[in-house]
Design a protein around this nucleic acid. Sequence first.
DNA 1: ATGTCTTTGTGAACGCGTGCACAAAGATGG
DNA 2: CCATCTTTGTGCACGCGTTCACAAAGACAT
Lengths: 259, 259
Amino acid sequence: MATGRTHRPATRSRGIPEATVARLPLYLRALTALSERSVPTVSSEELAAAAGVNSAKLRKDFSYLGSYGTRGVGYDVEYLVYQISRELGLTQDWPVVIVGIGNLGAALANYGGFASRGFRVAALIDADPAMAGKPVAGIPVQHSDDLEKIIQDNGVSIGVIATPAGAAQPVCDRLVAAGVTSILNFAPTVLSVPEGVDVRKVDLSIELQILAFHEQRKAGEEAHPDGTGPAAVTREESGDSAESADQGPDGDVPAVMPA
Amino acid sequence: MATGRTHRPATRSRGIPEATVARLPLYLRALTALSERSVPTVSSEELAAAAGVNSAKLRKDFSYLGSYGTRGVGYDVEYLVYQISRELGLTQDWPVVIVGIGNLGAALANYGGFASRGFRVAALIDADPAMAGKPVAGIPVQHSDDLEKIIQDNGVSIGVIATPAGAAQPVCDRLVAAGVTSILNFAPTVLSVPEGVDVRKVDLSIELQILAFHEQRKAGEEAHPDGTGPAAVTREESGDSAESADQGPDGDVPAVMPA
DNA sequence: ATGTCTTTGTGAACGCGTGCACAAAGATGG
DNA sequence: CCATCTTTGTGCACGCGTTCACAAAGACAT
């Protein structure tokens, strides 16, 4: 091992900043909408408004891709759609597997946004033998015993994990061992993966908690400047009917609170 | 990354950086797990590892909340769970409505991570009359005609939008008009909201596209746009050293095995 | 009580992302 | 062909977030 030389979280690729990459899909969606309306060109100002960003930021983002605009006119919509699609790798077909066909997995399988963007659900995988063969979104669920074979037969490099938290890491390990190098994780767990494997996390609960923070702030400052906040009590569980063996991808239970 | 989030220059934030707020739920989850194992105290190093972050970052994050640690020992798990919960506003009950009970909406309704974090699904709302009354996750779906009444009767301030893209903005407008001030948007649309309303966006397709970008990089970027598929790797990363001043000095590509 | 050892809390440096402001580039009209 | 007008592309400055590195604080052993 060298010193700290090449110790990089594999986040930056070539010269395109990660923040820019994260916005490219946003631009692409806005451009696609324009394309469908047969709009030939668009200015950075208009496109930025459609994408919900600053126009200067948009121009700078595009400058990382190259100079695809015409000064005095704007950007050619079709050309830009193509360039961004190519940059994002959407001009090729990406077979994807979804592991864990619970409520969320089924929702993902049915999600139309995948197919329309170059992603193809190659297989649905679940550990429950009762699910095997049952069609979800028109695709028969396969048992996780065949995970490795499915990955290899289909040349899958992107995997989606929608399992309960406890199963996520083992599934992840098997996916990686089978050749998957990009993982979209919906399970509320920190996955550890070897170098070179990308993991993106989507956590519904976390998003809500962030909203709650801001919400509390808003409520607190207009109502009670008093430090305690608005009625900091009542944490009733009411989990009466929710006794279900809900394999909502969450392994946690309510926090215990002292005082 | 909220979309419509106005970047108001601090003032209200009580000093807690947004990036820190976004990590608090992560810490909370790790701490909850420790709490369940009856671990009394934890060091910043251990907790950081469990949460998947840097220990210095974690300590700095906690420093914004106050000095809850003991030097030489670490942090009291229970106490920290309580402090973070309180800071995030999870010590109170947050009624939430989910609008759009399709596959995704149903998945969200069944998601266990909500109830365990102080969130309570107060109502499920759908525009389809055929859905009305039908129970999802034990909760009867209500028609969107009653949206305003539902919001007001339940004192809902957080709404989740899981509708098709076309319906998102109208639904958003109605939610906001009825008093909702925080929105979690799953529809692939840029929502425009008035000042003071927080919007967070979760877009499954965008996440996959970002993964595809990195995946393409890993696989060898010069692939022809005609979609020859991710065949064998063609290493073309050659001219990417620290030559050009404009491009990032990052020329290293993790030695990834091509499957 | 005193010294040692562990771990926190934070000052400071650094790098990334953002937004301003403007010059360059090209279209458009006379 | 020249003047003017529009819009891009970008140099620069600023602020936020991350990380390092270390002094301060407290526990613990003797």
